[in-house]
């Protein structure tokens, strides 16, 4: 079953582009990564899902229901963590969380206690006395306290220290095990790599790729770095399957996808002093999505 279905969603802010013809599905129980550089349209998509903004065309469904017409109903089971957290400054953390809980018509006090201990957050502080990272924790608690079935996280890790990030990821994995579906937007690939099953890559408002993390990491891509003894012409390695070709002095590096024999033969024909062939990080694979076009 699909928890989120996005169909040809387009949003223009006046004349400027938000997103164009975005479509993807998120299946129940998966952690879905939503990746793209700043301004690509991640937040726009998420804000449409939450009916904060309305699409110019296209539609989106959550739990099989149109996210605009059934907004209030589906939001009962959604937890949302915005990329930048802003709350009523003059309130104490606990009062804000209680206010948040009051919208869900169930007792959340036990969950609040559990989560605050796990995230190491002082509930009696005033929100305006909190650091950015601690505000983020308030955001996390606020998004999780009503035990939602779907978590929508918009760049959730910014501001959290590595230890907290770790705890947060563990928390997400635990929730996921309980059956919670997670939409995780980020521009940091390594965190998506750690957590997600599938990923959609968005660039300049369009989805340019939708793949399984495992497929992306399959050995089809090789990162090749060669030290040559005498300079070679740029065209030498411009063959099918080579991307991100870079030449600096005597160092040549590129990504290769295809028959390994082919590239090994190519390398054997020139005089080299060193060669490394390794699996590229996701970052490097994505760079060519980012920069291409």
């Amino acid at each position: 079953m699909n928890v989120i279905e996005v169909n040809n969603l387009t949003k223009y802010y006046g004349k400027s582009r938000g997103i164009i013809d975005v479509s993807f599905d998120v299946e129940e129980g998966e952690i879905f990564g939503f990746i793209g550089p700043n301004g690509a349209g991640k937040s726009t998509t998420i804000r449409i899902l939450l009916s904060l903004i309305y699409p110019t065309s296209g539609s989106a469904k959550i739990f099989g229901k149109d996210c605009i017409n059934y907004g209030p109903e589906i939001k009962k089971d959604i937890g949302y963590l915005p990329s930048e957290v802003f709350y009523y400054d003059n309130m104490k953390v606990i009062d804000l969380l209680k206010y948040s809980a009051s919208f869900y018509k169930k007792d959340c006090s036990k969950r609040i206690k559990e989560l605050s201990e796990m995230m190491d957050l002082d509930l009696n502080k005033r929100i305006d006395d909190l650091s950015y990272g601690n505000r983020k924790k308030v955001g996390i608690l606020q998004g999780l306290l009503h035990e939602p079935k779907l978590l929508i996280l918009d760049e959730p890790t910014s501001g959290l220290d590595p230890l907290m990030q770790q705890r947060f990821f563990n928390l997400l994995r635990e929730e996921n095990k309980k059956g919670v579906t997670i939409l995780f937007s980020s521009h940091i690939l390594s965190e998506v790599q750690k957590l997600c099953n599938r990923v959609a890559i968005i660039k300049e408002g369009r989805i340019i790729s939708l793949e399984k993390i495992s497929t992306l990491r399959e050995n089809s891509y090789k990162k090749v770095t060669i030290e040559v003894n005498s300079p070679v012409k740029g065209e030498y390695f411009s063959i099918d399957g080579v991307s991100n070709l870079e030449m600096k002095d005597n160092t040549i590096s590129f990504l290769f996808k295809g028959d390994t024999n082919l590239i090994v033969k190519k390398i054997a024909e020139i005089s080299i002093s060193d060669v490394t062939i390794e699996e590229p990080s996701l970052e490097e694979i994505f760079m060519h999505y980012y920069t291409r076009g």
Binding site: K75, Y80, F86, Y88, F103
Partner: peptide
């Protein structure tokens, strides 16, 4: 202005 609208509108209320 205080950017708390996100908080309110993403709650299950019309």
């Amino acid at each position: 202005k205080l950017k708390t609208a996100d908080f309110l509108i993403t709650k299950p209320v019309r």
